[in-house]
Simulated scan of single mutants.
Amino acid sequence: MLKSLVRGGAAMILSRWPAWEPRAVRTAFGAFRGVEEKSLAALVHHSSTRRRSAKRNALSLNPAVLAILDHLVPSFRRTPEIHVVSRGSSRDAVGQFLRRPDVRRRFHAIGISTASVAIHANDMETDGAGCYTGGIRGNILLKFNRMDVMPEGAVFIGDDEDEIIFRRRGGKSGIRFVNWRRWKGEQQKY
């Protein structure tokens, strides 16, 4: 546990600078060395029932992002491609999250099939015996290179830090940015 806390803190500090971010991501994912795949699945599916009336999952959907999607999806002639681009979550964790029944229901309610969502995230290596090695397969996805995997004409939904990076890089041609922390609802122009 202490090792995970130290790695997490180091990753947060290192991720502030583009040159150090690959090291930050490797450090953060290194905290999963020796963790069983089924433990990650248990975390994704874990729910707390402190109050009898409300069941809360350990991981939940961002209601602001859902509100933005609910507003944007009807403006397209056909259901748009949805891409989840995450450098902080593993591809496996995002996939398991999207397959969770409550998440599927919420996406279905706004007209999106979670089975069609493309996932761009770091892929954790496994040792073949059901444990993560702490390594990452393939190229490392970073906050500074995420736009490279976004399709032309995408709407990038992110936070303040994402917006700073998006603007600093001059944006990517055809990608529009929506800051979910500042979303004002239907009157919002994007």
Rank of each mutant, 00 (worst) to 15 (best):
G135Y: 12
S75G: 06
E81A: 14
A64V: 04
E161H: 15
S116I: 03
P63Y: 02
I119N: 07
V84I: 14
T79N: 12
R137P: 09
P151A: 09
S86V: 10
V117Y: 00
G138M: 06
P63D: 01
S89C: 10
G130H: 09
P74V: 00
L66D: 02
M147G: 00
S113I: 00
L69T: 00
L72T: 03
R167M: 07
V73P: 01
A109D: 06
V85D: 01
F144D: 08
L142C: 02
D123L: 05
A115H: 12
D70N: 11
A154D: 01
P151K: 13
E81Y: 05
S75D: 07
G158L: 10
N122Y: 03
S113F: 03
E125W: 09
E161K: 15
A129I: 10
K143H: 03
R169V: 06
E161V: 08
D70C: 15
D92K: 15
R105A: 13
A64L: 14
P151Q: 15
D159F: 10
T79F: 13
E152Q: 14
P63G: 01
T114F: 00
A93S: 11
T79C: 12
R104M: 03
S90R: 12
S116L: 09
E163T: 10
I68F: 01
I119L: 02
Y132Q: 08
V84T: 05
V84K: 05
S116R: 11
G128V: 00
V94P: 11
A118T: 15
R169W: 15
K143S: 05
F97D: 05
D127K: 13
T114A: 12
A129D: 13
G135Q: 13
S75C: 04
R99L: 13
G153D: 01
E163Q: 14
A109G: 03
C131D: 04
E161N: 09
G111R: 15
H83R: 09
A93T: 10
